[in-house]
Amino acid sequence: MDTRSMTSRHLENALLTLDDELAENIVFESVKGESPVKTAGNLISDALKRIGDSWENGQLSLSQVYMSGVICEKIIDKILPPQSPGRRNQPKTAIAVFEDFHLLGKRIVYSTLRASGIELMDLGGGLTSEKIVSIVKKEEIKILLISVLMLPSALRIKELKRQLAHVDVKIVVGGAPFRFDDELWKEINADYYGKDSSEALEIVNKLMETGG
């Protein structure tokens, strides 16, 4: 195992034991040898990805994914503040909970993306399609991540997508109903589906590389 992998494992362990001081020290040590952007994109991203993957295969629980993301988000805000030019904020990206009020999934994805150096708008929860269309147009959002917990909310994304048909924005969906039906994201005409925060990060990374 090379030094980077060992450091990343070390960080992962610190996150899973909720040792935020140790996690911060590991990250601070890393930025002595490379830019904060690289540390966010490699070290932190890798650790969070492995934690997300371990949840996916049943080895970890969602509370651990959540707590890890929150700790990393706090650390990254110290080494790469929100207005820092190192933050990737183009194309403009936002995240929202559509219609329902279950915010945890959004929070996990938001933390993971921010901890990986991506700056995005948090539009909140309980948003109607009219409200989202209006914000997307006004803010010229190009990548919109939508989280839902309830099946009816997931189904109504199809109507939201129809209303955004002539707007240059990619819709990335995620949440419980999609995890129980692999076909659902296609049925509602979403552009992408991320089954967890790691996949959401991969999708956003690719879209940012290609300009949305």
Binding site: G58, L60, S61, L62, S63, Q64
Partner: peptide, 9 residues
Amino acid sequence: SPTLIPKEL
């Protein structure tokens, strides 16, 4: 459920 919290917790 272990989906949400660790078994130890």
